[in-house]
């Protein structure tokens, strides 16, 4: 066991939990006290996490305002301390946190908006994939369609909510004038997050299309996925769904083994 490990634990506990740091560190400095030094580290620690959270959740930040976000971030940091050296990983649990965060319970949609924002954050950093050439799909003989296994873009995610999170998200993007009216009880919202080139896309998705995509994501062949979807949604239009999902860069490839 390293003595260094004990030293770092004592120093770290002083930063994170305000525990005593003496006699580990020198106590006299020319222009300030050791308490000032620890305070600066503590501020850096909280400040870096606060900033990471604010940059991953710009809509939540706008919805609750600077002061409340600062308060919320402090509570969140205490409950879900950082566990990755990469700050872009910090904040994954904010939606969970918000569902039980008493002071924000009046904003019933907040947790779902957070889930949507985290999906966008992940989509932004997801791996690249080349967009599917729709002509490539058109060359497949129709009788082979049902055997195709589709590949999904790593950025693709679906977020569901009882609230109109798609409209809320779009109303808070830069370029919007903030003059909007949203009916909170407008029904279930299914939102598809994707990325085309460098830009994260947020769009509403029809229930039947979402059901089909769910089966595809589970790795089912296109025929099985379509049959399962048709059982629940007899009006499901496969052709329209394919076009939509290729255009949104959700379907990026299909199992080439089937073609040869």
């Amino acid at each position: 066991m390293l003595a260094l490990s004990d030293d770092l634990t004592v120093f770290g506990s002083a930063i994170v939990r305000g525990e005593a740091v003496s006699p580990l560190v020198d106590t006299v400095y020319p222009h300030y006290s050791v308490a000032t030094a620890i305070d600066i580290y503590r501020n850096n620690y909280c400040g870096n996490l606060h900033d990471a959270l604010a940059s991953a959740y710009p809509v939540i930040y706008q919805l609750v305002g600077d002061d409340f976000f600062r308060f919320l971030a402090r509570q969140f940091i205490a409950q879900y301390p950082s566990c990755s050296a990469n700050l872009h990983h910090f904040g994954a649990e904010l939606a969970d946190f918000l569902t039980t965060f008493e002071p924000a319970q009046k904003l019933v949609y907040l947790a779902d908006v957070a889930a949507l924002e985290w999906a966008c954050h992940r989509a932004y950093f997801a791996d690249d994939a080349v967009m599917l050439d729709i002509n490539k799909l058109a060359q497949i003989p129709p009788e082979q369609y049902s055997d195709l296994i589709m590949r999904i873009h790593p950025a693709s995610q679906v977020v569901r909510s009882r609230y109109p999170i798609n409209a809320i998200w779009h109303a808070h993007q830069s370029g919007e004038n903030g003059d909007f009216h949203i009916e909170l009880d407008s029904g279930t919202n299914i939102v598809l997050v994707s990325r085309i080139a460098d830009v994260v896309q947020v769009n509403e998705l029809e229930e039947d299309c979402a059901a089909w995509l769910h089966e595809i994501q589970a790795g089912r062949a296109m025929g099985v996925a379509t049959d399962l979807t048709l059982e629940r949604f007899p009006d499901f239009d496969l052709h329209a769904a394919l076009l939509n999902l290729v255009r949104q860069n959700i379907l990026i490839d299909f199992n080439p083994g089937v073609i040869t």
Binding site: L2, A3, L4, S5, D7, L8, T9, F11, G12, S13, I15, V16, Y41, N44, Y45, N48, L49, A52, P81, S82, C83, S84, A85, L87, F90
Partner: peptide, 25 residues
Amino acid sequence: CWNAAARMVINDLLPFPYTAEALDH
């Protein structure tokens, strides 16, 4: 610098004691 010890991750650039043991590490 260091940024993790025990179960803590502190996303900052933190100093440590310059000892022979730390140098090996």
